[in-house]
Design a protein around this nucleic acid. Structure first.
Ligand SMILES: [Mn+2]
Ligand SMILES: [Mn+2]
Ligand SMILES: [Mn+2]
Ligand SMILES: [Mn+2]
Lengths: 223, 223
DNA sequence: TCTAAAATTTAGTCTTACCTAAATTTTATT
DNA sequence: AATAAAATTTAGGTAAGACTAAATTTTAGA
């Protein structure tokens, strides 16, 4: 009965999952932007995903999609692969954290469940990837995440860096350089009303840094 | 100018390379059998490969194909990936030698050159994979191989096992069990004219084994 | 050398997954 | 509430890579 989940479909589901995490329903345009595909093509695929057996998304014309339970499981499977792979590439092959995302994006669709299990075991069943992102469990549950945006902090607040977006290698190299990496403690020294800049004291760094929203909107912290 | 070498094309080139190693020209039917594809589909692809820029095969109607220099380089790239991956899976993730072929067949098309280089380095630039098959060098040259078929040996000859075919997991498990693995010395105790059976003394094993041609035609040795 | 079988190619289809251009629907602004 | 802009869908295509059935060519056996 159930149809083949191609690499292309896996990519759609993964990005829909991530879009659903924020504003519930994922829009055609947002999906198109993320996948670097024409919006018209996305519409076509959403219709197929909604009509497949079992349906992978719930689709209402002009109102975007959400994942069904089946779609979510398939998405979490891919995300688990991705994040385990990133961890594996860093720990086992000496990649740096800005190099792994692209490689994992290709491998995630191809490895077997056996490969997944062997990686997880070799790595000691990690719960987070090199960017601090949560790794779905083997039974495909996403652990709860209560972190908030660094951009939402204000003067005198203290927090611990939990995770950072991993898709921009240049940003990752910059964050590494200024010491903004998972589990590091930070203190907000100043918030600038006008541009949203934050002056931040980073644990273990001599001088404060001033971070714009381009940066602070990509970093998540626990207060 | 030069067109994209898809996963499908990589598979064609790889199998054509292996067929060319034996009887020079690879036939439509043999390729079809190996790829598990209808012969008519193969004809279509061979025409495309011959007309691509640059051409990847030399194709004469009804006479099969050989690889061009470009086609051969592309094939050796895939074969290098495959054999390094097999070695990596065994050494790093604890796969056994009968489990790696299938996984490597999928990964070989997807890893980056960086991944290839990191594996090679981590493994100490191996020259053979877990089945004893030669790994093409980083500059895509296939080392010379002067091994011959175990099936070609006769009574009282002595040889060293060099490599075994890796695509049949059951055969690999059997060979492991009887100790017929690369670098092991063997002696032919008897050759049976009628069925081609060889009675073989395997170094380190208590009793002799009798091997049919189904086995001896899959094992390569150096005299 | 003739002929039957085997191998190969041609012709015509299909599905996936993309595209552009045009039509439609939603939304945001006056 | 009207309308312009933005988002989305529809309609009509394309290319890759497979398929089947039928035609053709090669090969091998009598
Ligand atoms: Mn990533
Ligand atoms: Mn990550
Ligand atoms: Mn193999
Ligand atoms: Mn091998």
């Amino acid at each position: 009965m159930s149809e083949i989940i191609t690499q292309s479909i896996q990519d759609y589901l993964k990005h829909i999952y991530e879009l659903n995490e924020h504003g519930s329903s994922a829009s055609t345009n947002d999906i198109a932007t993320r996948l670097n595909i024409a919006p018209a093509s996305v519409t076509g695929m959403l219709q197929r995903l909604a009509n497949s057996t079992p349906p992978l998304v719930i689709y209402k014309k002009h109102q975007g999609v959400t994942l069904t339970k089946n779609g979510e499981k398939a998405a979490l499977e891919v995300i688990r692969h991705h994040r385990l792979l990133e961890t594996f590439l860093v720990n086992t092959l000496g990649y740096s954290w800005d190099e792994v995302h692209c490689e994992a994006d290709k491998l995630e669709h191809v490895i077997s469940e056996d490969f997944e299990a062997r990686m997880a075991k070799a790595l000691g069943n990690p719960t987070r990837d090199p960017h601090g992102e949560l790794i779905p469990t083997a039974d495909l549950t996403m652990p709860a995440d209560k972190s908030c945006l660094l951009a939402s902090l204000r003067t005198n607040e203290t927090a611990t860096v939990r995770r950072v977006s991993d898709d921009d290698p240049a940003l990752l190299r910059h964050l590494r350089k200024i010491g903004v990496v998972p589990e590091v403690k930070i203190t907000i020294k100043n918030y600038s009303e006008f541009d949203g800049n934050l002056t931040v004291k980073v644990e273990g760094q001599k001088s404060n840094v001033v971070l714009g929203t381009a940066v602070t909107s990509q970093v998540f912290v626990d207060k």
